[in-house]
Design a protein around this nucleic acid. Structure first.
Lengths: 222, 222
DNA sequence: CTTTGGCAAATTGTATACAATAAAGCCGGT
DNA sequence: ACCGGCTTTATTGTATACAATTTGCCAAAG
């Protein structure tokens, strides 16, 4: 079932990520309730969730604002992801089963197919990439780790970066996943951790470059 | 101001940690509302927070239960703490100021005083220890890191372990804090990280030993 | 004896009304 | 013109009522 609270969460989230609401904007519960077509109760629920995502910030008196994500903040998030997903990869390697391996191989094969042609299927790439990382996380078998990481991974601000990837960048990502598979096959936790950390850091640099380009373009327009 | 929602959160949390509610128990919103003397609205708020602490678990249909913390789960939490607080220590070392150093020294001096006599002041030790770690975390200067760690650190299940510490264990903890101060003075991030990770891991082993003793005692009674 | 169907009770989701609190505007004094 | 305190307004916190959904139970059929 899809509750009103979920819809409100998705709606507000989309408004923030699309730029319809920009950093620093005040988020009144009543105003949001009207825009989402629900009452304040599910809105309050949604705000709590968005707060734990750090997408909104609350003052001492519980007023909500869209939080501003500096490049440094995004860097932080990536650094933490690198550390935690690296750890997840290590644990996954140590606990890997043939069943999960098969799923991972299938998943990365799908990624390979999606980016084979001249015009890569970015949508499929993103979905499968997300699935790949979710499988690794799941294989690590730590609810708490999963809990911490989902908040960090679900940052569509970042996902959109992939739309600016070059052909080489897609191939590189695909190939790094293969390295990961090798490490898993050999139950080599340390190798898996190293590869994963590099994989995430590379993604950050890709984001960083794309972001720099975008802000420069924006500055040119303004 | 202390809101009803906060009181409800504290009350339910205390009920779980004290063992008044045991693992697997169902948490009906109405029943909790009555026990806390508030309505269901702030209870729902509190349950959301407890869920993100992983102190309670929710089924697909949103029913709440006290989650069971196996030794493995606690180990997970400590391992993540070691990694994240190690990272925090590294960053803190790199960004350390004389002002924060002074606060840290004062804090650890207070810890030293609290455990100097034959009968250590456990309460003061815990408060000051918490403050010490909070200062380090703050000095690391990453909101997101703080966000991730607070959920991991605020686990009174674990804090109570200190009541079973030996004289040596207290001294050891105090001395490790001093090592940390040395690393901070020298801006040696790697050293700080190593010391912090060891510090947390040691705490886990202390917990683990104490826990083992406790369950064995329980088994003897039953 | 097990299973399945549906009914009844309990539980959660949502809306709305009201109370408490903080922000903003206003006015008079300096 | 500027500042301090007061009043007004806007916003959030809480309680309660009702709707939607789930769970448990019991009876009847296989």
């Amino acid at each position: 079932m899809t509750t009103a609270s979920d819809r409100a969460y998705d709606t507000i989230r989309a408004m923030i990520l699309s730029g319809e609401l920009s950093a620093g904007d005040a988020l009144g519960e009543e105003a949001l309730a009207e825009r989402c077509g629900v009452s304040r109760t599910p809105i309050r629920d949604a705000l709590r969730r968005l707060e734990s995502d750090l997408l909104i910030r609350r003052t001492g008196t519980q007023r909500s604002f869209v939080s501003d994500w500096s490049l440094g903040d995004v860097g932080d998030a990536f650094e933490l992801r690198a550390m935690l997903e690296g750890y997840a990869a290590r644990r996954a390697a140590e606990a890997m089963t043939e069943d999960v391996m098969a799923q991972l191989r299938a998943c990365n094969a799908a990624i390979g197919a999606a980016i084979a042609g001249q015009k890569p299927d970015v949508r499929t790439f993103l979905d499968r990439n997300r699935e790949f990382h979710a499988l690794v996380l799941d294989a690590a078998g730590s609810r708490r780790l999963t809990n911490l990481l989902t908040a960090l991974i679900e940052q569509p601000v970042v996902w959109r970066t992939a739309h600016h990837y070059s052909h080489e960048a897609f191939q590189r990502s695909h190939s790094e996943h293969n390295d990961l598979l090798s490490a898993f096959e050999r139950r080599d936790g340390v190798w898996a951790e190293t590869v994963m950390m590099g994989h995430i850091r590379r993604a950050f640099h890709a984001y960083s470059d794309a972001h720099k380009g975008m802000t420069e373009r924006e500055r040119g327009v303004a």
